[in-house]
Lab assay of single mutants.
Amino acid sequence: MTVLPKDIPGDSLKVTVGTANGKPGDTVTVPVTFADVAKMKNVGTCNFYLGYDASLLEVVSVDAGPIVKNAAVNFSSSASNGTISFLFLDNTITDELITADGVFANIKFKLKSVTAKTTTPVTFKDGGAFGDGTMSKIASVTKTNGSVTIDP
């Protein structure tokens, strides 16, 4: 049996954390987006972790974005102690894959008090994996961190 590389060099799934701005007490939304989904033969499963400074940001909610089908079954998240974990699994293993680019999740943060303008990162942590529509590992994932700026 011969195994051929399935990824064209330079191609990767792009996962990007967005940015937001606000004043202390505001609730802002930071999107997590996927790009080049079709090039990577869709997404059938993924789990990953984001870190944030809990002294500056309070997670209000984490909701599935419009590219997630049947989110009540296929999407899960949790947030505590400065870490947000995400889990997606197409429970049907074929019919509810992520097949389009767009917003995977929206994180709502309540901004805490600061004395001066502060930009705090929302960054990928170690761990996690992504699988394509056949549940094979997506070897190349380009992750881009985001941030939230609090301006009193």
Score class of each variant (00 low, 15 high):
residue 30 V to T: 10
residue 39 K to R: 10
residue 146 G to S: 04
residue 52 Y to H: 12
residue 19 T to P: 11
residue 69 K to D: 13
residue 134 T to N: 04
residue 19 T to M: 09
residue 98 I to S: 03
residue 138 I to T: 05
residue 87 L to R: 00
residue 63 D to G: 09
residue 137 K to V: 00
residue 24 P to Q: 12
residue 29 T to N: 14
residue 149 T to L: 15
residue 120 T to L: 04
residue 82 G to S: 15
residue 38 A to Q: 11
residue 28 V to A: 13
residue 13 L to Q: 09
residue 15 V to F: 01
residue 32 V to L: 09
residue 30 V to Y: 10
residue 42 N to A: 14
residue 63 D to Q: 10
residue 55 S to V: 14
residue 75 F to L: 12
residue 38 A to N: 09
residue 61 S to D: 08
residue 85 S to V: 03
residue 139 A to W: 15
residue 49 Y to C: 05
residue 34 F to R: 00
residue 47 N to R: 00
residue 44 G to P: 01
residue 41 K to M: 14
residue 50 L to R: 01
residue 91 N to C: 15
residue 40 M to Q: 06
residue 6 K to C: 14
residue 145 N to L: 05
residue 40 M to L: 08
residue 15 V to S: 08
residue 120 T to D: 06
residue 25 G to W: 09
residue 88 F to H: 00
residue 15 V to K: 06
residue 19 T to I: 09
residue 138 I to D: 00
residue 59 V to K: 08
residue 4 L to K: 10
residue 122 V to S: 06
residue 51 G to E: 09
residue 68 V to A: 09
residue 80 S to H: 09
residue 105 A to C: 13
residue 75 F to K: 02
residue 32 V to G: 08
residue 6 K to W: 08
residue 45 T to C: 07
residue 104 F to S: 04
residue 125 K to G: 01
residue 22 G to C: 05
residue 142 T to F: 04
residue 31 P to N: 07
residue 44 G to F: 02
residue 148 V to R: 00
residue 30 V to I: 13
residue 99 T to C: 05
residue 139 A to C: 04
residue 39 K to I: 09
residue 103 V to A: 10
residue 62 V to P: 08
residue 71 A to K: 12
residue 35 A to I: 11
residue 44 G to I: 13
residue 99 T to Q: 07
residue 100 A to S: 09
residue 133 G to K: 07
residue 37 V to K: 07
residue 58 E to T: 09
residue 61 S to R: 10
residue 91 N to R: 02
residue 14 K to I: 08
residue 46 C to N: 08
residue 92 T to D: 00
residue 59 V to G: 06
residue 126 D to V: 15
residue 118 T to L: 04
residue 100 A to R: 07
residue 146 G to Y: 06
residue 39 K to G: 13
residue 144 T to S: 07
residue 36 D to W: 14
residue 126 D to S: 15
residue 109 F to A: 01
residue 84 I to N: 02
residue 88 F to C: 06
residue 105 A to F: 14
residue 104 F to H: 02
residue 131 G to S: 03
residue 74 N to G: 02
residue 36 D to C: 05
residue 75 F to W: 05
residue 6 K to D: 13
residue 11 D to N: 14
residue 67 I to P: 13
residue 3 V to S: 10
residue 152 P to T: 15
residue 69 K to A: 11
residue 43 V to A: 07
residue 66 P to H: 10
residue 39 K to Y: 09
residue 62 V to E: 13
residue 27 T to N: 11
residue 2 T to A: 13
residue 114 V to H: 08
residue 142 T to S: 05
residue 134 T to G: 02
residue 17 V to Q: 11
residue 95 D to Y: 06
residue 110 K to I: 04
residue 103 V to I: 06
residue 149 T to Q: 14
residue 90 D to W: 04
residue 91 N to S: 06
residue 72 A to K: 13
residue 30 V to W: 12
residue 87 L to S: 13
residue 4 L to R: 11
residue 67 I to M: 09
residue 87 L to T: 00
residue 49 Y to I: 01
residue 94 T to E: 01
residue 93 I to G: 00
residue 126 D to Q: 15
residue 35 A to V: 12
residue 131 G to C: 03
residue 9 P to R: 10
residue 59 V to E: 14
residue 49 Y to S: 02
residue 113 S to Q: 05
residue 106 N to Q: 08
residue 53 D to R: 11
residue 128 G to H: 03
residue 40 M to D: 08
residue 110 K to L: 02
residue 131 G to L: 01
residue 69 K to W: 12
residue 105 A to K: 01
residue 73 V to P: 11
residue 81 N to L: 15
residue 43 V to Y: 01
residue 137 K to R: 04
residue 94 T to K: 05
residue 50 L to S: 07
residue 61 S to M: 14
residue 97 L to T: 05
residue 62 V to Q: 07
residue 100 A to K: 04
residue 120 T to Q: 03
residue 105 A to W: 02
residue 133 G to A: 03
residue 147 S to G: 06
residue 28 V to P: 10
residue 35 A to R: 13
residue 19 T to F: 10
residue 30 V to F: 12
residue 50 L to C: 09
residue 10 G to E: 13
residue 54 A to F: 13
residue 103 V to S: 06
residue 13 L to C: 10
residue 14 K to R: 11
residue 64 A to F: 07
residue 66 P to N: 09
residue 122 V to A: 05
residue 67 I to C: 12
residue 71 A to N: 12
residue 88 F to T: 00
residue 91 N to T: 04
residue 82 G to D: 15
residue 138 I to N: 02
residue 112 K to L: 03
residue 143 K to N: 03
residue 151 D to I: 15
residue 48 F to A: 08
residue 108 K to W: 02
residue 68 V to F: 08
residue 17 V to W: 06
residue 63 D to E: 09
residue 69 K to P: 08
residue 99 T to A: 05
residue 52 Y to F: 14
residue 71 A to V: 12
residue 57 L to H: 08
residue 138 I to K: 01
residue 40 M to E: 08
residue 86 F to Q: 01
residue 87 L to G: 00
residue 72 A to V: 14
residue 65 G to A: 09
residue 48 F to R: 01
residue 35 A to C: 06
residue 5 P to F: 06
residue 125 K to D: 02
residue 114 V to E: 05
residue 145 N to H: 03
residue 82 G to N: 15
residue 116 A to C: 06
residue 83 T to P: 07
residue 51 G to C: 08
residue 15 V to I: 06
residue 142 T to G: 03
residue 22 G to Q: 10
residue 106 N to A: 06
residue 107 I to S: 01
residue 138 I to Q: 03
residue 150 I to D: 14
residue 37 V to Y: 05
residue 152 P to L: 14
residue 3 V to R: 11
residue 28 V to S: 10
residue 130 F to H: 00
residue 43 V to T: 10
residue 20 A to F: 12
residue 42 N to Q: 12
residue 112 K to A: 03
residue 83 T to V: 15
residue 11 D to L: 09
residue 28 V to R: 10
residue 38 A to Y: 11
residue 139 A to M: 04
residue 19 T to A: 13
residue 83 T to M: 06
residue 34 F to D: 06
residue 108 K to S: 06
residue 55 S to F: 15
residue 127 G to M: 01
residue 28 V to Q: 08
residue 9 P to V: 10
residue 116 A to S: 07
residue 21 N to S: 12
residue 62 V to N: 08
residue 124 F to I: 02
residue 31 P to L: 11
residue 38 A to V: 13
residue 125 K to S: 02
residue 119 T to R: 11
residue 138 I to E: 01
residue 22 G to T: 09
residue 75 F to G: 02
residue 101 D to I: 03
residue 11 D to K: 10
residue 28 V to K: 13
residue 45 T to V: 13
residue 147 S to V: 06
residue 3 V to P: 11
residue 82 G to Y: 15
residue 53 D to V: 12
residue 133 G to P: 00
residue 4 L to N: 14
residue 5 P to L: 07
residue 140 S to Q: 07
residue 124 F to D: 02
residue 16 T to R: 12
residue 10 G to M: 11
residue 34 F to Q: 07
residue 67 I to Q: 12
residue 127 G to W: 03
residue 118 T to S: 09
residue 123 T to A: 08
residue 8 I to L: 12
residue 123 T to S: 07
residue 102 G to N: 01
residue 77 S to C: 15
residue 102 G to I: 12
residue 104 F to G: 00
residue 148 V to W: 02
residue 24 P to V: 11
residue 76 S to A: 14
residue 52 Y to N: 09
residue 111 L to R: 03
residue 50 L to T: 11
residue 3 V to Y: 07
residue 57 L to R: 05
residue 104 F to L: 03
residue 96 E to D: 06
residue 84 I to M: 03
residue 93 I to Y: 01
residue 97 L to Y: 00
residue 68 V to Y: 07
residue 70 N to F: 06
residue 23 K to R: 10
residue 74 N to Q: 00
residue 103 V to F: 06
residue 114 V to N: 10
residue 12 S to T: 13
residue 95 D to T: 04
residue 31 P to Y: 07
residue 76 S to Q: 04
residue 103 V to D: 06
residue 90 D to A: 03
residue 96 E to P: 01
residue 127 G to T: 02
residue 89 L to M: 02
residue 18 G to D: 13
residue 98 I to E: 00
residue 25 G to F: 13
residue 132 D to K: 02
residue 114 V to I: 08
residue 146 G to T: 07
residue 82 G to H: 15
residue 137 K to Y: 02
residue 30 V to S: 09
residue 123 T to I: 07
residue 15 V to E: 07
residue 55 S to C: 12
residue 129 A to E: 06
residue 150 I to A: 14
residue 85 S to G: 01
residue 20 A to P: 12
residue 12 S to Y: 14
residue 136 S to D: 01
residue 33 T to M: 12
residue 37 V to N: 12
residue 76 S to N: 10
residue 27 T to K: 09
residue 42 N to E: 15
residue 60 V to D: 12
residue 93 I to S: 02
residue 93 I to W: 14
residue 8 I to Y: 10
residue 135 M to Y: 15
residue 142 T to W: 15
residue 67 I to S: 11
residue 124 F to V: 04
residue 86 F to E: 02
residue 57 L to V: 10
residue 145 N to P: 05
residue 59 V to F: 11
residue 12 S to W: 07
residue 150 I to C: 15
residue 35 A to M: 09
residue 142 T to H: 08
residue 18 G to C: 14
residue 26 D to V: 11
residue 129 A to D: 00
residue 8 I to A: 08
residue 80 S to V: 14
residue 118 T to Y: 08
residue 34 F to I: 06
residue 61 S to W: 13
residue 45 T to D: 00
residue 146 G to V: 05
residue 127 G to V: 03
residue 62 V to M: 11
residue 85 S to Y: 05
residue 62 V to T: 12
residue 25 G to A: 10
residue 145 N to I: 04
residue 62 V to F: 06
residue 55 S to R: 09
residue 141 V to A: 03
residue 42 N to K: 11
residue 5 P to K: 05
residue 54 A to N: 12
residue 20 A to H: 09
residue 48 F to P: 01
residue 61 S to G: 14
residue 22 G to H: 13
residue 16 T to A: 13
residue 5 P to S: 07
residue 53 D to T: 11
residue 110 K to S: 04
residue 36 D to N: 14
residue 103 V to T: 05
residue 1 M to T: 08
residue 76 S to H: 06
residue 128 G to P: 01
residue 95 D to W: 01
residue 97 L to P: 15
residue 72 A to H: 14
residue 31 P to S: 11
residue 7 D to A: 08
residue 121 P to Y: 05
residue 7 D to C: 09
residue 148 V to L: 07
residue 65 G to T: 10
residue 130 F to T: 01
residue 75 F to Y: 05
residue 97 L to H: 14
residue 24 P to S: 11
residue 113 S to F: 03
residue 100 A to M: 03
residue 117 K to L: 04
